[in-house]
């Protein structure tokens, strides 16, 4: 398990990470999202022992990671800004990875290189941006480490390759019970791959949850009544839960003409039953994308949430 305890990182006067704490459980694909400058890459570099935390602690399986070869041997990191040793070929890089990672699987490396149709003997400088990323991803996967960390890995990959890489990561996690940490500024990249997600914003951890809970925690309701109504009316309709507890929360309410859209958290079935009892003209429950879930959760937490997901929002 990766434990991040009150991790803090400053670059001169700028505080890139502000006392972040969370755990990444074993055998999962953990996604980290956030806009540029949120601190994702910094956190990845701290988890991989490249950067030393200015405060707090980062432990892998209970041991601090910084300058700890035993721990670092368990993890391989694919950075956002790739380095491929001048004009080295994949084979040359494979030798380097093999020298550093005793678990490096040369056979698997050749297999993957073949699968991606990459020439192992060619210099990486002759590869396209996407091919370089594929090459380094292949090398990292061939290290067969317990933890694999990818920083903006899907950048520059075409959709086919993106799916292939995602598939490989998923297979690796399933077959070897490894743990993957993937960062992206695009939530869409991660929602179909990750088991857990964390949202970083301006150096802080805003939210962390597993995808299943996140996706079911909020729902969107579209409804219309024949008579005039307001948010207060809806809240009145739902005020009787029969238990004394409030089983819902309206995180977002918007009305256009007679049709209202609401983002709600709570007992989905009960809400639909209570609203249905009022004989609406339209009553429909719609699924939310992960981005919408994050956006409304953030609004509820009082974050100014413009551009958190960058251009993909």
């Amino acid at each position: 398990m990766i434990e991040v305890k009150n991790a803090r990182k400053c670059f001169d006067d700028f505080e890139a990470l502000h006392e972040i704490s969370f755990n990444i459980p074993d055998h999962c694909i953990f996604g980290m999202v956030g806009s540029n400058g949120a601190g994702k890459s910094t956190l990845m570099r701290m988890i991989t022992g490249i950067y030393r935390a200015d405060g707090g602690e980062i432990c892998i399986d209970g041991e601090p990671v910084y300058e700890n070869p035993q721990v670092k041997r368990k993890m391989v990191f694919v950075a956002d800004d790739l380095y491929y040793m001048g004009n080295a070929s994949m084979n040359r890089l494979a030798l380097t990875y093999q020298a550093m990672y005793p678990s490096f699987d040369m056979e698997y490396f050749h297999e993957l290189a073949k699968m991606f149709h990459l020439d192992e003997r060619k210099s990486l400088t002759t590869f396209s941006k996407g091919m370089k990323r594929q090459a380094i991803t292949i090398l990292a996967l061939s290290c067969r480490t317990e933890y694999i960390l990818f920083d903006e890995t899907f950048d520059g990959l075409d959709p086919v390759m993106r799916n292939l890489v995602k598939g490989l990561i998923c297979r690796d996690i399933a077959d070897r019970k490894a743990t993957a940490v993937i960062t992206s500024h695009s939530l869409r990249e991660l929602e179909d791959t990750c088991d857990q997600l964390a949202l970083l914003h301006k150096g802080g951890l805003v939210l962390q949850s597993d995808i299943g809970t996140l996706k079911t925690s909020l729902f969107k309701v579209q409804l219309a009544f024949a008579e005039e109504y307001s948010r207060e009316n809806i809240e009145d309709y739902l005020s009787f839960s029969g238990t004394g507890d409030i089983p819902y929360a309206i995180l977002h309410f918007s009305k256009s003409g007679s049709v209202a859209n609401m983002i709600m958290r709570g007992d989905h079935q009960l809400v639909m039953e209570l609203l249905g009892a009022k004989k609406p003209l339209i009553l429909e429950s719609l699924p939310l994308t992960l981005e919408e879930v994050f956006t409304y959760e953030m609004e509820a937490l009082g974050y100014s949430f413009e551009n958190v997901f960058g251009e993909d929002m």
């Binding site: 490249i50 070869p69 670092k72 950075a79 800004d81 790739l82 040793m85 550093m100």
Partner: peptide, 18 residues
């Protein structure tokens, strides 16, 4: 003195002294 190279080598499971 190259950001990506520095990260690459420092990610290796080797102490800096070593």
């Amino acid at each position: 003195n190259k950001r990506n190279a520095s990260d690459f080598y420092h990610s290796f499971p080797v102490r800096r002294e070593t």
